[in-house]
């Protein structure tokens, strides 16, 4: 009985959601949960309403509750997808990426009775990429800042060393252990040495700084020829060309042909390209997020 009343309220919430009355939708879902709190779908629906209202923390809690009900290995791709969105909005790109990957894996190989939307694979795949970019952008920014700090620290210690050497020379001059001419020659030598070392230090750090690599491009073999985006789950065709899984699926749904050769091609004939996937992962790890640009 309680679950029947909850379903009625959930239905009202869905209507409100479709009419873009998100506060009202959230309210109906809350009432539904008060009647019956064991239906994971009500929690995912409320999470979706809360995403629209930008109540990220509430959305995270709803998704976690929904996932708790379906169990850690249960099919619940929507909850993982909404969770990833909220986590990304809360600037937790690591967690967001892991949730997005779970959602993606769940639509890639769904449970037998799972309801998968026709655009889910493509949407989730795009979102995985977004999380990846966010995660590595944060990491690379941190690394740059650390390197900046390290560079500054090294420059300071060079500066301190220069000062010690100069002090020593003036002490020796005072004690008349050095003549005036010799002392000024030594002083110049110290300054020259210092300038050269600072210049070298800066050159080394500049060479290691990926922001100086803007002109570099993502290697072609890591880019999906259909979307022009870097790949994260590449599959290979009979002819040896690789594409991002979600985009080649989308193409094959309309035209069961190899995009390059026009030979007949179907989804079951595609194979995961693990080697290329490893190369893609390595590319992200290499601190490349800066020159991937717009997202």
């Amino acid at each position: 009985m309680a679950s029947y009343q909850a379903d009625r309220l959930k239905e009202k919430g869905n209507v409100a959601f479709r009419n873009a009355s998100f506060p009202e939708a959230e309210d109906f879902y809350t009432q539904a949960i008060q009647k019956y709190s064991n239906n994971p779908l009500i929690f995912t629906n409320r999470a979706n309403a809360r995403l629209k209202l930008q109540r990220w923390e509430g959305a995270v809690n709803d998704c976690l509750k929904s996932i708790e009900i379906t169990g850690p290995n249960g099919q619940n791709h929507k909850a993982f997808y909404f969770l990833a969105q909220a986590q990304l909005a809360l600037h937790h790109p690591h967690e967001a990426l892991s949730s997005a990957l779970t959602a993606y894996e769940q639509v890639r190989s769904p449970a037998p009775n799972a309801k998968i939307g026709p655009k889910d694979l493509e949407t989730f795949s795009g979102f995985v990429l977004r999380c990846k970019k966010a995660k590595f952008a944060v990491r690379d920014r941190e690394r740059l800042r650390r390197e900046g700090d390290l560079g500054a620290e090294l420059e300071e210690s060079l500066e301190a060393q220069k000062q010690r050497e100069l002090d020593l020379v003036s002490a020796q001059l005072e004690r008349v252990e050095l003549g005036q001419v010799e002392a000024s020659e030594r002083g110049e030598e110290i300054l020259e040495n210092f300038d050269r070392k600072v210049a070298e230090l800066r050159a080394v750090f500049a060479a290691a700084d990926p922001t100086n690599h803007k002109s570099r491009e993502i290697p072609d073999h890591l880019v999906d020829m259909i979307t022009f985006e870097p790949m994260h789950d590449p599959v290979i065709t009979k002819n040896g060309h690789s594409y991002e899984r979600a985009t080649i699926y989308e193409h094959l749904k309309r035209s069961p042909t190899d995009p390059l050769t026009r030979d007949p091609l179907t989804i079951p004939e595609l194979r995961s390209n693990f080697g290329l996937k490893a190369a893609c992962d390595e590319f992200w790890e290499s601190g490349a997020s800066d020159w991937i640009g717009d997202w």
């Binding site: 655009k119 493509e122 949407t123 795009g126 259909i226 979307t227 022009f228 985009t247 717009d294």
Partner: peptide, 13 residues
């Protein structure tokens, strides 16, 4: 997904 065409076109541009 609406994103596909616009991203691809931005890159082509």
């Amino acid at each position: 997904m609406a994103g596909m065409s616009s991203k691809r076109l931005q890159k082509e541009l």
